[in-house]
Design a protein around this nucleic acid. Sequence first.
RNA 1: GAGGGUGUAGCGAAGUUGGUUAUCGCGACGGCCUGUCACGCCGUAGAUCGCGGGUUCGAGUCCCGUCAUCCUCGCCA
Length: 634
Amino acid sequence: MFLCRSKNRSSPRPRGVSINCHTSSYRIVFVYLKGVHMAEHFSKRTATCGSLTKADDKKAVILNGWVHRHRDHGMIHFINLRDRYGITQVIVDDDSSKELQQVALSLNLEDCISVTGVVRARPASMVNPEMATGEIEVKAEQIEILSTCAPLPFQIDDGNVPREELRLKYRYLDLRTEGMKKRIKLRHDTVWAIRRYLSARGFYEIETPTMIKSTPEGARDFLVPSRIHVGKFYALPQSPQLFKQILMVGGMDKYFQIARCYRDEDARGDRQPEFTQLDLEMSFVTRDDVLSTMEGLFGYVFKEVMDYDLPPTFRRFSYEEAMNTYGCDKPDLRFGLELQDMNDLASRSTFATFKEIVAQGGHVKALCAPHSEIVDFSRKYITDLENAAKVYGAHGLAWMKVGENNTINGGISKFFEGLQGEIIDRFDAKEGDMILFVAHKEWKKTCASLSAVRSKLGKDLQLIRPGFEFCWIVDFPLFEYNEERGQWEAAHHMFSMPQAEYIDTMEEDPGKVKGDLYDLVLNGYEVASGSIRIHDVELQKRIFRICNFDDETAQERFGFLLTAFSFSPPPHGGIAPGIDRIVMIMAGESSIHEVIAFPKNTAGISPMDDSPSFVEEKQLEELHLKIVYPEKKE
RNA sequence: GAGGGUGUAGCGAAGUUGGUUAUCGCGACGGCCUGUCACGCCGUAGAUCGCGGGUUCGAGUCCCGUCAUCCUCGCCA
């Protein structure tokens, strides 16, 4: 295409000057630069919009970018030209040619242009200290409009953030904003820091298939129909779990992968149908090896990417301890408000409701909200807290206030005659504090409800310290009883190792068995989950049986793993940190959408490409599929 | 599957106990301006108030339904 015009190369142009040839529907521009003759569609940049400084004074440059702003003062135009690297002020004034002034006049915001010109240092009075390139500007000699911008559906850069629906529909415009660029860079930096760290420590990055056999437990699978094998389906992986274990059997020793995972469940602010995990597995390790590898990794990543110092090791809580102290298994340690067990005092009180719940084996827990200048502990506010608790099953939220001279008053205080001293001591409560109680037959619901109250208080009273607080939650129960299905299920997954002391007798009371399981928690979010795996076929089969998988079913579903495990698997374990969530927290955001280039909305729809969509009848025929629509409800 | 919030001009918002011609900022368009940097000044256009129905003399406002979207519970080994 260019060859036929190559003869024009014989007429070199002075540096920075170009000629537009309108010999075809597009422009061909010939640029003479650094002694090289080239035919190009456009004047290619010699610098970026963030790179020029005073040291470049008088230098001839070409910049490519978008018109970020255009200030037209009649005989002088200021054009803020933007690219990924920054913004540079371009100037067109009365020295400029009529043609150039004409072009400047015709510029619209977000037009993509190429500016050929000369850098000049700004006089002291015109320096803009707010701008990285505020000490210089580029006097334009020529401006080419590379492409024009249609009327914008929303403005690219200002305080008015459009509703997310629009941002997602026109994500390419949204990506041009400073915030998105910063977050995409943060994600890139994070992923590359991870790769550097792990590779330097002997980990191999290995890809595993994204079309795999469907495994029925856990979340719903996304299915991919096979055209060749009628009636058969691949599944998209919920995680590379089985493959990474098999990589260990294959002697890969240390593996990681930035892996896309798919779960067909309802989305949330911190959940997408497809998401990215750092999947990682190691051979010949115990739990503490995995934990310290992660501590080292995140210490490195946070230092490299954010210059933030993490402690060399993270606090550890057993599952039970975390639940009893914070009410949940992903506590936000950036504030206190620890829970206290109140069963003893409740049963010594005259409060029938509490006494009854304790007598039935239930739980009464409480926390102490400190006196606050920000929030008035009014009846209305207590009702707000109560509603937060009720979402998680609490029937109500009881309260009492701490008065002067170690007294308690209001709410349920009258039932605690003679116990006020003990209550106040237990919380080290001060005048103006409020003590809040949740009582429920179920331990988990008591914890979860009061945890919701704790979270709301943390936010409302502005108790949350800035920063990043990691912790480990360990010793999770290995099994959970599913009331609905009337059977035991793996709390994490069926490949996790029971702790040694439970192995011999685990069939007797599966509910008591603790696993070699661990979660990594950051600022109240679960950001990683892992375990030491079973590497013994017989033990694996016993776990399957407890989870109501008979040998035949287990063989059918996981036969390939069991077969692999008959060939001397090493002891191994691993973990899978969620990249989206971690980068989200690093970015100080509350939705993973903000750190994903093309996220789906809460309904699993991608507003930009409008997926999912119907397919051609012919495609269905090839796959031997027929859609049976659900009947509409009356 | 359930509960809650939101929907007013291209974008972001205001709109009182229901009451005249629905307001403001940004943007767009036209004009003026030689040092701005969120430039400034003058002017113009732009809204079936998500959609459908109801109550009322009168609905952006009240009621019912519906759609979209966000948050939450369930779900997410």
